[in-house]
Nucleic acid binder design. Structure first.
Lengths: 336, 336
DNA sequence: TTGTACGCGTTATCAG
DNA sequence: CTGATAACGCGTACAA
């Protein structure tokens, strides 16, 4: 009962043809009579034959795996389950991959053991890898080792990347709050090591400058908890805050909770705007105004680029973001 | 500049040893003098040698990939990015996998093309696959083709699975609401095709029966939108509802929003309890009381089982769930 | 249209 | 401790 898996040899023997013919028949190659092909497939099915993946890629030289490499700040992978961003990346990649025969391989590295990533990625001789949350220096190293690499989000100059207009998005968010009559707009920024977070910080600063407001900045690390804390501190120090821009939806959710806990009504007393338009944005109460980041599309674009074989240095795909107005932001109610 | 990747042959030649020795040296096998090992590694590093994955698994016969197979109800992968459950599964698997040299391969199938999964999984000669959201009949087929398979969530009898005490959890949720003084507890159920959803339905019914309340059931498909709709309808038909149990956090979030939109206060007028304890539960306003499903631990357990080599028929790992009380549920306020 | 023969990069077996 | 040499399962020129 423990007989080994049937190989293509067994199929060939069973169908009374040579291995080569069997191979051609199974791979739908040209130059096989219909009768033979049918017989071969028949036998293959009877035997329960399934091609050996490793042998196939070895022999053909073709690769059919594309890697998703994410580096986590934490030592464990919990972030992956907590922040919706990662799931969206996977979704975008799977969508483009499903039609092809290509597989998605997932690899995570803690920041501390990130040097391992360089080795790990090197054996990706194939279609390449999508980089998520990889700091620019490491991205550069990876790109040196393996050219077929493309980063999700801004990174080192030479490394191909697909980016979003984070600066403009944050700027628009501030403009939106200002247009609602908000005159004391604070920001909860993301981690400084994250290039997206930095872009959004710049966008906020630009926006604030544009409308002539004062910079009221707190910061966190893309987590709800840190945003809750930062918001609480901010409104204690600056009670007149009437608008909050958070670097991501998760943080905006924390801000809304902190505001509510402090007795402020959202959006009446304080309007808040997030960034991402992840599932979080639709789940808060009230539903969140946010800047939509087309993560799925970006991931899909990166994947497609890899599939199409090439990414030369300096390649950039840039995506627009756009403001989605929901109920967490509104004009200041008229005094009755 | 386009010289092909160095093979172990190149390393062996460079270090002036045989392939076999080079292989042993690199793989830290026994029976290699320290001097030789050092020289080989040196050369390997200089050449930028990295072992060929396919060749290695082919030659050794060892497999180092474990699959995560998820079937999606939708035609696209968007669900993966929307529902936190999937990310948590990945997180749990990655955590156990990171210490080993094993890789995680991701595969998604729409329900319609699910038959493809049977073929796809078959070439997983290796450590096996974790099944997520795979309907029992398909799970059975997969298990027939490849024994090293284990389902996350209840499934067909013969297929190994790790399960959670969904029935008890739902029952406890209802009990909790009752103890808070709620006497009209409604439920928003998940899709009937989902075994977890069905267990929770049963648990709700049990609980309702236990405390002598009436069954007030609506249903959705694990999405926020459907829960919003169902809740709206339910409270129109039964205005005296003072408690809601939802089959997952995402649905509970929709319920909270619907309740708020209808002018009910949560938790004062209506208390709501979710299921999962995903990131969603912490992001709602108020933060959500929910039944914690240890998804990461379950996924980790399944992965470990696969890693350990074996899953005989009938194997079951069962996990307890527990109620996490937050602010979306509270006793009925005393009339003043 | 089909078969022969070789190579893909490694690991494993057996001598030395 | 080290070196030939044979698998591993399959794809594919090339020949028939």
């Amino acid at each position: 009962m423990q007989d080994r898996k049937p190989t293509i040899n067994d199929v060939a023997r069973g169908a009374d043809v040579s291995r080569a013919t069997a191979s051609r028949a199974i791979n739908k190659g040209p130059g096989v009579s219909e009768a033979v092909r049918f017989r071969v497939c028949q036998v293959a099915k009877e035997l329960g034959y399934t091609p050996n993946f490793a042998a196939r890629t070895l022999a053909s030289g073709r690769q059919n795996t594309i890697d998703l490499i994410v580096v986590a700040y934490d030592t464990d992978a919990s972030r992956f389950g907590l922040h919706p961003y990662f799931g969206r990346v996977v979704a975008g990649m799977m969508d483009t991959l499903s039609s092809t025969g290509t597989h998605l391989r997932l690899r995570m590295f803690a920041e501390s053991q990130a040097h391992l990533a360089a080795d790990a990625i090197a054996d990706t001789t194939g279609l390449g890898a999508v980089l998520v949350n990889v700091p620019p220096p490491l991205a550069t190293r990876l790109h040196q080792r393996c050219k077929r690499v493309i980063s999700l989000g801004a990174t080192a100059p030479h490394v191909p990347a697909v980016e979003a207009e984070n600066v403009l998005g944050a700027q628009e968010a501030v403009g939106h709050l200002h247009s609602l009559g908000r005159r004391h707009v604070a920001a909860i920024h993301g981690p400084t090591v994250n290039t997206c977070a930095e872009s959004r910080r710049i966008g906020y600063l630009n926006g604030i400058h544009e409308v002539g407001q004062r910079d009221i900045s707190g910061s966190g690390n893309f987590s709800r908890e840190t945003a809750y804390l930062a918001t609480t501190r901010l409104i204690e120090a600056q009670p007149d805050i009437d608008g909050v821009f958070a670097a991501c939806d998760l943080m905006a959710a924390g801000a809304i909770q902190a505001l509510t806990a402090a007795g402020r009504r959202v959006p009446d007393d304080v309007s808040v705007v997030g960034f991402d338009d992840s599932v979080i944005a639709t789940c808060t109460n009230p539903p969140m105004t946010t800047v939509r980041l087309p993560v799925e599309e970006m991931a899909a674009a990166a994947t497609r680029k890899l599939l199409d074989g090439g990414t030369a240095d300096y390649w950039r795909g840039v995506f627009a973001v756009n403001l989605i107005v929901r109920d967490s932001s509104a004009a200041i109610p008229a005094l009755s």
